[in-house]
Design a protein around this nucleic acid. Sequence first.
DNA 1: TCCCTTGAGGACAGGACCTGTCCGCAAGCG
DNA 2: CGCTTGCGGACAGGTCCTGTCCTCAAGGGA
Lengths: 318, 318
Amino acid sequence: MLQTSARLLKLLSLLEMRRDWAGDELAGRLEVTTRTVRRDVDKLRELGYPVHATTGTAGGYRLGAGASMPPLLLDDEEAVAIAVGLGAVVSAGVGGMEETSVRALAKLEQILPPKLRKRVGAFRSHTVGINFGGETVDASVLTLLANACRDHDRLRFEYRAHGGSESYRITEPHRLARAGRRWYLLAWDIDKADWRIFRVDRITPVTPTGPRFTPRELPDPDVSAYIGRKVTIGAYQTKVRATLHCPAELARQRIPERYGTVTPIDDETCELESRADNVDGSAYYLASFGWDFEVHEPQELKDRLAELATRLTKAAGA
Amino acid sequence: MLQTSARLLKLLSLLEMRRDWAGDELAGRLEVTTRTVRRDVDKLRELGYPVHATTGTAGGYRLGAGASMPPLLLDDEEAVAIAVGLGAVVSAGVGGMEETSVRALAKLEQILPPKLRKRVGAFRSHTVGINFGGETVDASVLTLLANACRDHDRLRFEYRAHGGSESYRITEPHRLARAGRRWYLLAWDIDKADWRIFRVDRITPVTPTGPRFTPRELPDPDVSAYIGRKVTIGAYQTKVRATLHCPAELARQRIPERYGTVTPIDDETCELESRADNVDGSAYYLASFGWDFEVHEPQELKDRLAELATRLTKAAGA
DNA sequence: TCCCTTGAGGACAGGACCTGTCCGCAAGCG
DNA sequence: CGCTTGCGGACAGGTCCTGTCCTCAAGGGA
């Protein structure tokens, strides 16, 4: 019964929208009797979505957190907000779990009504990006690649090689992965008849995507490791060592374990050790804490800091 | 029929998961005949979710983008990724549409299974935050406040006033809003019997939330404007004027309209004018472009840059 | 061009399911 | 104690669902 299914969905949407609902209200909204509401609530429960109910004057229904994830019923604005937000996170590479985020974003964008997609696009172009020293990647390119991987669609794109020369590639995209601060695409290059790793920020995809292909066996089951091996230069290569003039506890609060390790020296200072792929990023990151610090290595970072200091001195004026 | 509804949901989930599905496959997954699959597909279409179908050898079903947003069926990982990502965006205040993002996040967290919620929490604490000069706000505090506003739950919290003194507040929370780089809560303070505006980063909420209350008429229908008027100090108050040593076009590419206006001076330089609430933020932002620049006002920003330059000189070592 | 594959959809029959109505019960709350 | 609100059994009429069978239509490959 279509009406029943639609009503169940609507009921779920109502329950997600507000926390407490009286049976009466729900019945009114759904245009059925309260008896039917009770039955529908039961159905949701049978489907595994725990709807709590309380009796008495202030009673009502309330959707709880269950064992599995219920369908998310978003209104237009929320959908746009998630697309924009997730896009910002993904393209800046913050938050961790990058691949999954891209997958989720791709899923969302695929079913996003065109009207909303436009709004997302408009927002992305007018929004201050999170850009923390590293290059950002266009979120729409990422979702396009993610979808092509998922759907085994052949992909054609312009690729700007390191030297600046452009080439036209026809590929069978297999995986999207992050290494360091960059996104990479692992794909089978048709013309070269071999696996290639492409930097996503150098890709300009050609739409529409091509015909479907049958996936090949990957050159290595652990794609991240494979990319990490192949893309030797750049990613998380340089060791950074610095003394921070602040208590270790404070530093630990501000600096996530993921970024690096903090070792106390005395009550007032501590040592930070981490790896960075991007000297600029590290420079801004260290500067942003507001503590005094000294960098011991790499020299490159010290040079960059000196350079930055010069620029800022000039910027501050006479 | 429960089975039918559940099957429709499962069908939708399958269609969201992969792009192309053969009728056979779907029938197998759903354990019904292909005839029933066809009928179910029809039902989805009637519900407004456009399912395209192609005949022939490479035929199959495919979910398209419709007029309205279909329910998002996320797997566990995707749900966690969205919660983490959106949390990062919201607490850093990037991406725009802050209020809606918080609403969406609150909705998601409310139905997030406890197991996943733990994973989200773990991730948040181990993750490098986006922290661009401004204070970040705890995403879980924000969602808690958003939910309290939505559900009209009384809220108790510890509040650290400007001077550092703590007070215990019992409030009726009404709205959450951003002004400048900060989050504010507009609430009715029970003890003071008046409206108060609280900075979210100074709030430590006490769980659980209290009993429900009936919302009052807001002191001003335009809450942002109201907060903007009341919170005179800080928010987007200072005018920033700087000369950038780069072509105007380039600057316009990097600097979103939202942040400020760029006026060309000559082919090599341009002027940037914007407003900032946060001198630190502006300092890092300007520095991050990699162009030479000079700040004309405010003096505070120049001081900060000079200070930063000193620190960086020291950091770069002898 | 022909044939195979795959989706579309009408007809049919048996059965499952849904809904509204009526009613007695239980649990909060004042 | 009484009011409000949710719970759920029973019942009857009607709707809807499913599998089966069959004929078409539209791509794609040989």
